[in-house]
């Protein structure tokens, strides 16, 4: 049965600023390192995840975004993520260590879906996961796939969006999708929120 789903919350992390539902809620000086920005945000939001400082930048970004997006999630909240650079930052680190002492602590982060594993542990989600990679955010496809998971009752809610971290920059955009709300979950809305 066709029915509507709703975007009830959105989070964006860019240029050392964090926006929740388009409102700036946290920022640091723009010239500090991304790692320092993430450390300060972690403290500011009082997030508790003991492994936080061991994670790579993609996972740290995803962790902060997911904690700002919502405090608690239903156990069957699906995760549908996409980015352009897969796990480029950790890949580069591992590649540089190949001929010396490659470390399992780095290697494990050379897969983009690890962030979904970390989020699942933090929020106790034993749910559907899918990580996609594309040059640009495929709003139409991400909306379509997320909606089909919800319609087929494979999940009761979903977090979907774009989690990009590369050697130069990052851009994170997550949305919470559920059965009731104000803003209908459509590809147009998703794209509009992503670009604004």
């Amino acid at each position: 049965m066709k029915r509507d789903w709703y975007i009830t919350s959105s989070v964006k992390l860019k240029k050392h600023q964090i926006f929740k539902d388009d409102e700036l809620i946290f920022k640091t000086e723009p010239h500090i390192s991304t790692q320092d920005f993430l450390k300060e945000a972690y403290r500011f939001f009082g997030i508790n995840y003991p492994k936080f400082h061991k994670m790579d930048v993609l996972c740290k970004l995803g962790m902060i975004a997911s904690c700002v997006l919502k405090e608690e999630y239903p156990k069957d909240t699906a995760l549908v993520f996409q980015n352009a650079s897969s796990s480029e930052v950790s890949d580069t680190q591992h590649q540089e260590s190949i001929h010396n002492f490659p470390s399992p602590a780095t290697f494990v982060y050379t897969l983009p879906n690890i962030v979904m594993g970390e989020l699942s542990i933090k929020h106790e989600l034993q749910s559907e996961n899918a990580f996609f990679v594309a040059e640009d955010f495929q709003a139409q496809f991400i909306q379509n796939y997320t909606q089909s998971l919800l319609e087929q009752k494979k999940a009761s809610a979903a977090i979907c969006g774009w989690l990009e971290a590369n050697l130069d920059d990052y851009y994170l955009f997550l949305n919470y999708i559920e059965p009731r709300g104000m803003h209908i979950f459509s590809a147009e809305t998703l794209l509009e929120k992503y670009t604004q």
């Binding site: 034993q126 749910s127 559907e128």
Partner: peptide, 19 residues
Amino acid sequence: EATANDANHISGPSRTGEG
């Protein structure tokens, strides 16, 4: 078909095979 996360460990499988 389905997928499910263990929500247990990122590099080791769940001891109970939950996922």
